[in-house]
């Protein structure tokens, strides 16, 4: 499953990168006279929406948006999480206190509400949507790294390294970090589909990036016309589901791979 998903995701990523080449039309190009064309119409493989925009093209560009936001948000949240998690887990003390306080606060906001709040305040731009997702995500990952580091810190090999007179930064970077990356990779692989979901969710509420096409917005519109023009929602919904499943199965695959090695080591 993971293997097939990997191909699916690879294909999707290529589509996103070469979106302008793949998409038959621009996202705002309207085909007057062909509004609400059904699936399979000549020139519009997946039909058109109420304004006569090509659904396939919008899907392709919408995925580009989702992927861009998700990856950018993940890169930021992983980097922040790595630094804070390492410090909190290894040094404890003040860094740990800060992380704990941040956790308490973040857990007081449901993820979506926090994102909604941020977007409300900072506007519906690419940066604020991305930041909203990153801010909502880093605490969880930082806590994971912290827990991992605290476990690894107590391993005998760290004590052995200390007895060889290795200093704190060396221990953290050379001995602890490489062994903490596995679980981080697993959570990150699950965080990407989650970020895609959040991005689409914000658009669904009308709080997405205002000048970029989004799947959430397509679903939002599609729901409104679900009874009269179901083709407007069917293809975005299916494309969305397939994408998320592919990412999830890749995550499952990565997790299983790490489970096996960690079990074999013991």
């Amino acid at each position: 499953m993971a293997f097939i998903s990997l191909w699916v995701v690879a294909l999707l990523v290529l589509v996103a990168i070469f979106a302008p080449l793949v998409a038959p039309y621009g996202t705002q190009e309207t085909d007057y006279g062909h509004q609400l064309a059904p699936i399979g119409s000549p020139g519009h493989l997946l039909g058109t929406d109420t304004l006569g925009r090509d659904i396939l093209s919008r899907l392709v560009f919408g995925f580009r948006t989702a992927l861009l936001v998700a990856f950018a948000a993940e890169v930021i949240s992983v980097l922040v999480a790595l630094v804070v998690g390492l410090l909190a887990g290894y040094r404890g003390g003040r860094a740990d206190g800060i992380l704990m306080a941040a956790t308490d606060i973040m857990y007081a906001f449901p993820t979506y509400l926090f994102a909604v709040l941020l977007v409300t305040v900072f506007g519906r731009s690419f940066w604020s949507v991305m930041a909203a997702i990153a801010v909502a995500g880093w605490v969880t990952q930082a806590r994971l790294i912290r827990a991992q580091v605290m476990t690894l810190k107590r391993r005998d090999y760290v004590e052995a390294a200390r007895s060889m007179d290795a200093q704190g930064p060396t221990i953290a970077m050379r001995y602890i970090l490489p062994n903490a990356l596995g679980p981080l990779l697993v959570t990150t692989s699950f965080a990407v589909p989650a970020a895609i979901t959040t991005e689409a969710g914000l658009s669904l509420l009308g709080l997405g990036i205002s000048d970029m096409p989004s799947w959430g917005a397509m679903i939002n519109e599609g729901v409104r016309y679900a009874s009269s023009a179901p083709h407007m929602i069917i293809s975005p919904a299916i494309a969305f589901a397939v994408t998320l499943l592919a990412f999830t199965w890749i995550g499952d695959g990565i997790r299983d791979a790490f489970d096996i090695t960690s079990e074999a080591r013991r």
Partner: peptide, 17 residues
């Protein structure tokens, strides 16, 4: 896994459809 991977709004879309 299907239920787990899909956000509730997408599930809702399919249910409504």
């Amino acid at each position: 896994t299907l239920g787990h991977a899909l956000p509730n709004y997408l599930t809702a879309v399919f249910l409504v459809l």
